[in-house]
């Protein structure tokens, strides 16, 4: 028999940078976040699935999400609940704002320490930054080993986990003793869809801030159903040094941001007519670009 696990999944709400429309940039060249749909970071969904599979095979295991962001990031917790997670915490405070990866990792690690899990699972990277730094940095701050680029859990038992890692040029099978942190690749199995039963159960799951903006009738409804309360943690709820949070705790600074401008070079426009295509090919052969 294996021991049930306490798993924390780190997840991020990100702007969907894969579908950037024309109105995504403001006239000043800054990002217009409001114009982009906010989604569950894709690789974090793979991380959630990996955690849920461990829950399926180890009865009694609990899966909790931890996300840091503004109030609307509570959507990430609800999405996780709809798919089978047991709960989640929204880490939200103005003092977290402006954090680079290091300050983000610091805040997350303080929250994880409070939750004291056996296993932390995160997506490899988020699509808005593509840095892949937060997973390893959280592990370092907690003084835990990390296993990155996990594709599959091959076995878990006796406090040890064996996983398959997908590297650029190959695969590795590695084993480690819990507690540790895994980051999960997009090549891992996709997340299961929302479950109708959980959707019904958790559709009214809300943070306190969300409840405050609602009809008072719901307060009593929520008081009787504690599983519908999504905890919000701020700086005062996690043990940490304030100077390590947010902008203050970020060693990297953005010096300059430029909207992307192409260097226009002399470009010849051609049509798809035979004559145009043939003259181009003739020129390419003549100047030995091809052939």
């Amino acid at each position: 028999m294996t021991k049930p696990l306490k798993i924390v999944v780190l997840a991020k709400q990100v702007p969907d940078t894969r579908n950037v429309g024309k109105d995504a940039m403001t006239a000043e060249g800054t990002v217009n976040r409001a114009a982009l749909p906010a989604i569950f970071n894709p690789e974090d969904l793979h991380a959630l699935e990996l955690a849920l599979r461990l829950k399926d095979s180890n009865p009694g295991t609990t899966v909790n999400l931890l996300t840091m962001g503004p109030g609307r990031a509570a959507d990430i917790i609800r999405e996780g609940l709809f798919r089978g997670a047991d709960g989640g915490i929204l880490l939200t405070d103005r003092k977290f704002a402006g954090a680079d990866t290091l300050a983000t990792s610091y805040a997350l690690s303080c929250a994880v320490r409070k939750l004291n899990p056996d296993l932390i699972v995160a997506g490899r990277q988020a699509i808005d930054g593509d840095t892949a730094q937060v997973g390893p940095q959280v592990a370092e701050k907690l003084d835990l080993p990390q296993i990155t680029y996990v594709e599959e859990v091959l076995s878990y038992g006796n406090g040890e986990i064996t996983v398959l890692r997908r590297l650029e040029h190959g695969v590795e099978t590695v084993r480690g003793k819990l507690p540790l942190l895994l980051t999960v690749n997009a090549s891992a199995p996709s997340c299961r869809p929302r479950n109708a039963k959980y959707l019904m159960k958790y559709k009214h799951a809300k943070t306190v801030s969300e409840l405050q903006t609602q009809n008072a009738d719901y307060t009593e409804f929520h008081r009787l159903r504690s599983y519908l309360n999504i905890p919000e943690w701020g700086v005062s709820d996690i043990d940490g040094e304030e100077e390590q949070f947010g902008l203050k705790g970020s060693p990297t600074k953005v010096k300059k941001v430029e909207n992307v401008v192409f260097q226009v070079k002399e470009s010849k426009k051609l049509s798809d007519a035979d004559a145009d295509v043939e003259s181009l090919m003739k020129e390419l052969i003549a100047n030995h670009t091809i052939g």
Partner: peptide
């Protein structure tokens, strides 16, 4: 950064 829509200089 941002899916390649901006170029950032970081220090």
């Amino acid at each position: 950064a941002f899916g390649g829509n901006i170029i950032a200089t970081i220090i």
